[in-house]
Protein backbone atom coordinates (compact mmCIF):
# COMPACT_ATOMS: atom_id res chain seq x y z
CA UNK A 1 0.00 0.00 0.00
CA UNK A 2 1.35 3.44 -0.91
CA UNK A 3 1.76 6.18 1.66
CA UNK A 4 -0.84 8.31 -0.09
CA UNK A 5 -3.44 5.62 0.12
CA UNK A 6 -2.70 4.84 3.75
CA UNK A 7 -2.71 8.55 4.60
CA UNK A 8 -6.11 8.96 3.01
CA UNK A 9 -7.52 5.94 4.72
CA UNK A 10 -6.28 7.08 8.13
CA UNK A 11 -7.94 10.47 7.61
CA UNK A 12 -11.05 8.59 6.61
CA UNK A 13 -10.72 6.46 9.70
CA UNK A 14 -10.31 9.51 11.94
CA UNK A 15 -13.38 11.08 10.39
CA UNK A 16 -15.26 7.84 10.77
CA UNK A 17 -14.23 7.48 14.40
CA UNK A 18 -14.56 11.02 15.70
CA UNK A 19 -16.54 13.26 13.41
CA UNK A 20 -19.66 11.07 13.37
CA UNK A 21 -19.51 10.61 17.13
CA UNK A 22 -19.14 14.40 17.51
CA UNK A 23 -22.16 15.07 15.31
CA UNK A 24 -24.11 12.41 17.20
CA UNK A 25 -23.31 14.07 20.53
CA UNK A 26 -24.33 17.49 19.12
CA UNK A 27 -27.67 16.01 18.06
CA UNK A 28 -28.13 14.59 21.56
CA UNK A 29 -27.35 18.06 22.93
CA UNK A 30 -30.12 19.46 20.70
CA UNK A 31 -32.50 16.82 22.10
CA UNK A 32 -31.58 17.77 25.66
CA UNK A 33 -31.67 21.57 25.32
CA UNK A 34 -35.40 21.86 26.14
CA UNK A 35 -34.86 19.63 29.18
CA UNK A 36 -32.14 21.97 30.50
CA UNK A 37 -34.67 24.77 30.11
CA UNK A 38 -37.32 22.78 32.01
CA UNK A 39 -34.88 22.14 34.88
CA UNK A 40 -33.79 25.79 34.91
CA UNK A 41 -37.38 27.06 34.88
CA UNK A 42 -38.27 24.83 37.83
CA UNK A 43 -36.08 27.19 39.91
CA UNK A 44 -37.63 30.28 38.36
CA UNK A 45 -39.01 33.09 40.49
CA UNK A 46 -41.38 34.65 37.94
CA UNK A 47 -41.86 38.42 38.05
CA UNK A 48 -45.34 38.21 36.54
CA UNK A 49 -47.89 35.59 35.59
CA UNK A 50 -47.82 36.52 31.93
CA UNK A 51 -44.69 35.98 29.91
CA UNK A 52 -42.36 33.06 30.27
CA UNK A 53 -38.83 34.10 31.15
CA UNK A 54 -36.24 33.38 33.84
CA UNK A 55 -36.46 36.21 36.36
CA UNK A 56 -34.62 34.91 39.41
CA UNK A 57 -33.56 31.85 41.38
CA UNK A 58 -35.77 30.35 44.08
CA UNK A 59 -36.36 27.02 45.81
CA UNK A 60 -39.97 27.99 46.50
CA UNK A 61 -41.40 25.89 43.64
CA UNK A 62 -39.64 22.73 44.79
CA UNK A 63 -40.74 23.29 48.39
CA UNK A 64 -44.35 24.00 47.40
CA UNK A 65 -44.95 21.77 44.39
CA UNK A 66 -48.71 21.52 44.90
CA UNK A 67 -49.34 25.25 45.21
CA UNK A 68 -51.10 25.74 41.83
CA UNK A 69 -54.75 24.89 42.20
CA UNK A 70 -55.63 21.41 40.95
CA UNK A 71 -52.21 20.57 39.54
CA UNK A 72 -51.35 17.76 41.92
CA UNK A 73 -54.81 16.22 41.49
CA UNK A 74 -54.09 16.15 37.78
CA UNK A 75 -50.70 14.50 38.40
CA UNK A 76 -52.32 11.86 40.62
CA UNK A 77 -54.94 11.09 37.97
CA UNK A 78 -52.24 10.82 35.29
CA UNK A 79 -50.20 8.43 37.46
CA UNK A 80 -53.25 6.25 38.14
CA UNK A 81 -54.19 6.07 34.45
CA UNK A 82 -50.53 5.55 33.53
CA UNK A 83 -50.14 2.57 35.89
CA UNK A 84 -53.40 0.93 34.81
CA UNK A 85 -52.69 1.49 31.11
CA UNK A 86 -49.16 0.12 31.53
CA UNK A 87 -50.47 -3.02 33.19
CA UNK A 88 -53.12 -3.62 30.53
CA UNK A 89 -51.02 -2.77 27.48
CA UNK A 90 -47.95 -4.69 28.69
CA UNK A 91 -50.01 -7.83 29.35
CA UNK A 92 -51.93 -7.79 26.06
CA UNK A 93 -48.92 -6.65 24.02
CA UNK A 94 -46.56 -9.29 25.45
CA UNK A 95 -49.01 -12.07 24.55
CA UNK A 96 -49.28 -10.67 21.04
CA UNK A 97 -45.50 -10.39 20.67
CA UNK A 98 -45.17 -14.09 21.61
CA UNK A 99 -47.82 -14.96 19.05
CA UNK A 100 -46.05 -13.01 16.31
CA UNK A 101 -42.54 -14.31 16.98
CA UNK A 102 -43.23 -17.88 18.08
CA UNK A 103 -46.21 -18.98 16.07
CA UNK A 104 -46.98 -19.40 12.42
CA UNK A 105 -50.57 -18.67 11.55
CA UNK A 106 -52.66 -17.31 8.74
CA UNK A 107 -53.14 -13.57 8.92
CA UNK A 108 -49.70 -12.73 10.32
CA UNK A 109 -49.25 -10.03 7.69
CA UNK A 110 -52.59 -8.46 8.64
CA UNK A 111 -51.63 -8.60 12.32
CA UNK A 112 -48.32 -6.86 11.56
CA UNK A 113 -50.04 -4.10 9.58
CA UNK A 114 -52.69 -3.49 12.23
CA UNK A 115 -50.04 -3.32 14.93
CA UNK A 116 -48.12 -0.73 12.94
CA UNK A 117 -51.06 1.48 11.95
CA UNK A 118 -51.87 2.92 15.42
CA UNK A 119 -48.22 4.00 15.77
CA UNK A 120 -48.34 5.75 12.43
CA UNK A 121 -51.80 7.33 12.68
CA UNK A 122 -52.16 10.97 13.65
CA UNK A 123 -53.46 11.21 17.21
CA UNK A 124 -56.16 13.66 16.25
CA UNK A 125 -57.69 11.08 13.89
CA UNK A 126 -57.53 8.23 16.44
CA UNK A 127 -58.82 10.43 19.24
CA UNK A 128 -61.71 11.95 17.35
CA UNK A 129 -62.87 8.66 15.84
CA UNK A 130 -62.74 7.00 19.25
CA UNK A 131 -64.77 9.83 20.78
CA UNK A 132 -67.33 9.48 17.98
CA UNK A 133 -67.58 5.77 18.78
CA UNK A 134 -68.02 6.38 22.53
CA UNK A 135 -70.72 8.96 21.84
CA UNK A 136 -72.55 6.70 19.35
CA UNK A 137 -72.41 3.80 21.79
CA UNK A 138 -74.06 5.94 24.47
CA UNK A 139 -70.99 6.53 26.63
CA UNK A 140 -71.05 10.31 26.27
CA UNK A 141 -72.11 10.69 29.91
CA UNK A 142 -69.35 8.52 31.38
CA UNK A 143 -66.35 10.00 29.58
CA UNK A 144 -63.49 10.12 32.07
CA UNK A 145 -61.10 7.69 33.73
CA UNK A 146 -62.34 4.56 31.94
CA UNK A 147 -62.58 5.98 28.45
CA UNK A 148 -59.11 7.51 28.82
CA UNK A 149 -57.81 4.14 30.03
CA UNK A 150 -59.32 2.27 27.08
CA UNK A 151 -57.72 4.75 24.66
CA UNK A 152 -54.32 4.64 26.36
CA UNK A 153 -54.16 0.82 26.33
CA UNK A 154 -55.01 0.98 22.62
CA UNK A 155 -52.17 3.28 21.61
CA UNK A 156 -49.57 1.80 24.02
CA UNK A 157 -50.22 -1.76 22.77
CA UNK A 158 -48.29 -1.42 19.52
CA UNK A 159 -45.23 -0.01 21.24
CA UNK A 160 -45.24 -2.93 23.69
CA UNK A 161 -45.50 -5.43 20.83
CA UNK A 162 -42.56 -3.83 19.01
CA UNK A 163 -40.35 -3.69 22.12
CA UNK A 164 -41.04 -7.23 23.37
CA UNK A 165 -40.91 -8.67 19.86
CA UNK A 166 -37.42 -7.24 19.34
CA UNK A 167 -36.17 -8.86 22.55
CA UNK A 168 -37.88 -12.17 21.80
CA UNK A 169 -36.53 -12.34 18.25
CA UNK A 170 -33.00 -11.84 19.61
CA UNK A 171 -33.21 -14.88 21.92
CA UNK A 172 -31.04 -17.86 21.13
CA UNK A 173 -33.56 -20.71 20.52
CA UNK A 174 -30.88 -23.20 21.58
CA UNK A 175 -31.33 -22.12 25.22
CA UNK A 176 -34.91 -23.32 25.15
CA UNK A 177 -33.98 -26.44 23.23
CA UNK A 178 -31.38 -27.18 25.91
CA UNK A 179 -34.04 -26.89 28.61
CA UNK A 180 -36.29 -29.26 26.68
CA UNK A 181 -33.42 -31.69 26.25
CA UNK A 182 -33.06 -31.65 30.05
CA UNK A 183 -36.65 -32.89 30.30
CA UNK A 184 -38.24 -29.55 31.19
CA UNK A 185 -41.77 -29.47 29.89
CA UNK A 186 -43.21 -26.65 27.80
CA UNK A 187 -44.41 -24.66 30.86
CA UNK A 188 -41.22 -25.14 32.91
CA UNK A 189 -39.14 -24.03 29.93
CA UNK A 190 -41.27 -20.94 29.57
CA UNK A 191 -41.16 -20.03 33.27
CA UNK A 192 -37.53 -20.85 34.01
CA UNK A 193 -35.84 -19.94 30.72
CA UNK A 194 -37.93 -17.88 28.31
CA UNK A 195 -39.61 -15.48 30.71
CA UNK A 196 -36.45 -14.43 32.62
CA UNK A 197 -34.67 -13.83 29.30
CA UNK A 198 -37.51 -11.75 27.85
CA UNK A 199 -38.16 -9.88 31.09
CA UNK A 200 -35.86 -6.89 30.38
CA UNK A 201 -37.81 -6.33 27.16
CA UNK A 202 -41.13 -6.48 29.02
CA UNK A 203 -39.80 -4.01 31.59
CA UNK A 204 -38.65 -1.62 28.87
CA UNK A 205 -42.07 -1.90 27.22
CA UNK A 206 -43.78 -1.12 30.52
CA UNK A 207 -41.61 1.95 31.07
CA UNK A 208 -42.32 3.14 27.53
CA UNK A 209 -46.07 2.58 28.02
CA UNK A 210 -46.11 4.57 31.22
CA UNK A 211 -44.30 7.53 29.71
CA UNK A 212 -46.51 7.47 26.59
CA UNK A 213 -49.64 7.35 28.73
CA UNK A 214 -48.49 9.97 31.22
CA UNK A 215 -47.54 12.27 28.37
CA UNK A 216 -50.54 11.95 26.07
CA UNK A 217 -52.55 15.06 25.42
CA UNK A 218 -54.42 14.94 22.09
CA UNK A 219 -56.31 11.63 22.45
CA UNK A 220 -56.83 12.17 26.18
CA UNK A 221 -58.18 15.68 25.72
CA UNK A 222 -60.83 14.41 23.30
CA UNK A 223 -61.98 11.48 25.44
CA UNK A 224 -61.69 12.86 28.96
CA UNK A 225 -65.08 14.43 29.66
CA UNK A 226 -64.62 16.35 32.91
CA UNK A 227 -61.41 14.61 34.01
CA UNK A 228 -58.18 16.65 33.93
CA UNK A 229 -54.87 14.86 33.43
CA UNK A 230 -51.50 16.54 33.91
CA UNK A 231 -50.89 17.32 30.19
CA UNK A 232 -54.39 18.81 30.03
CA UNK A 233 -53.55 20.94 33.05
CA UNK A 234 -50.38 22.15 31.30
CA UNK A 235 -52.39 22.99 28.19
CA UNK A 236 -54.90 24.97 30.20
CA UNK A 237 -52.12 26.72 32.11
CA UNK A 238 -50.53 27.82 28.84
CA UNK A 239 -53.61 29.96 28.16
CA UNK A 240 -53.61 31.55 31.64
CA UNK A 241 -49.91 31.77 32.49
CA UNK A 242 -47.63 28.88 33.37
CA UNK A 243 -46.90 28.25 37.06
CA UNK A 244 -43.21 27.28 37.51
CA UNK A 245 -44.33 24.19 39.47
CA UNK A 246 -45.20 22.57 36.14
CA UNK A 247 -41.47 22.45 35.48
CA UNK A 248 -40.90 20.91 38.92
CA UNK A 249 -43.19 18.02 37.93
CA UNK A 250 -41.48 17.75 34.53
CA UNK A 251 -38.03 17.63 36.14
CA UNK A 252 -39.11 15.16 38.82
CA UNK A 253 -40.67 12.79 36.26
CA UNK A 254 -37.52 12.97 34.17
CA UNK A 255 -35.27 12.21 37.13
CA UNK A 256 -37.40 9.31 38.39
CA UNK A 257 -37.50 7.68 34.96
CA UNK A 258 -33.81 8.25 34.33
CA UNK A 259 -32.81 6.79 37.70
CA UNK A 260 -35.01 3.75 37.06
CA UNK A 261 -33.41 3.12 33.69
CA UNK A 262 -29.86 3.74 34.87
CA UNK A 263 -30.33 1.51 37.92
CA UNK A 264 -31.54 -1.26 35.60
CA UNK A 265 -28.56 -0.75 33.30
CA UNK A 266 -26.14 -0.75 36.24
CA UNK A 267 -27.65 -3.93 37.61
CA UNK A 268 -27.35 -5.55 34.20
CA UNK A 269 -23.66 -4.60 33.95
CA UNK A 270 -22.88 -5.88 37.44
CA UNK A 271 -24.38 -9.23 36.61
CA UNK A 272 -22.14 -9.19 33.57
Amino acid sequence: MTTVASGRSSIGKWIGDHLIMGIGLLVLLYMFTPIFIVVLMSFNDPASRIGYSFDGFTLHNWLNPCEPNGMCDAVVLSVQIGLAATLGATFLGTLMAFALVRHRFRGRAVANVFTFLPMASPEIVMGSSLLALFVTAGFAGVLGFWTILVAHIMFCLSFVVVTVKARLAGLDPRLEQAAMDLYANEWQTFRRVTLPLVFPGILAAALLSFSLSFDDFIITNLNSGQAVTFPMYVWGANQRGIPPQINVIGTAMFLIALITVLAGELGRRRRG
Binding site: M31, T33, P34, I35, D215, G250, A257, L262, E265
Partner: peptide
Amino acid sequence: NLMLVAVIAPFFTSFLIRTLSWQLI
Protein backbone atom coordinates in the same frame (compact mmCIF):
# COMPACT_ATOMS: atom_id res chain seq x y z
CA ASN B 1 -27.02 1.53 25.93
CA LEU B 2 -26.45 4.85 27.66
CA MET B 3 -26.80 6.74 24.37
CA LEU B 4 -29.97 4.80 23.55
CA VAL B 5 -31.39 5.80 26.93
CA ALA B 6 -30.45 9.40 26.12
CA VAL B 7 -32.45 9.18 22.89
CA ILE B 8 -35.64 8.15 24.67
CA ALA B 9 -34.97 10.19 27.82
CA PRO B 10 -36.74 13.33 26.50
CA PHE B 11 -39.94 11.25 26.41
CA PHE B 12 -39.86 11.23 30.19
CA THR B 13 -40.64 14.94 30.44
CA SER B 14 -44.05 15.87 29.16
CA PHE B 15 -43.84 16.82 25.49
CA LEU B 16 -46.11 19.82 26.08
CA ILE B 17 -43.63 21.16 28.64
CA ARG B 18 -40.73 20.53 26.27
CA THR B 19 -42.52 22.25 23.40
CA LEU B 20 -43.26 25.15 25.72
CA SER B 21 -39.56 25.50 26.44
CA TRP B 22 -39.01 25.99 22.70
CA GLN B 23 -41.10 29.14 23.12
CA LEU B 24 -38.32 30.33 25.38
CA ILE B 25 -35.44 29.16 23.18
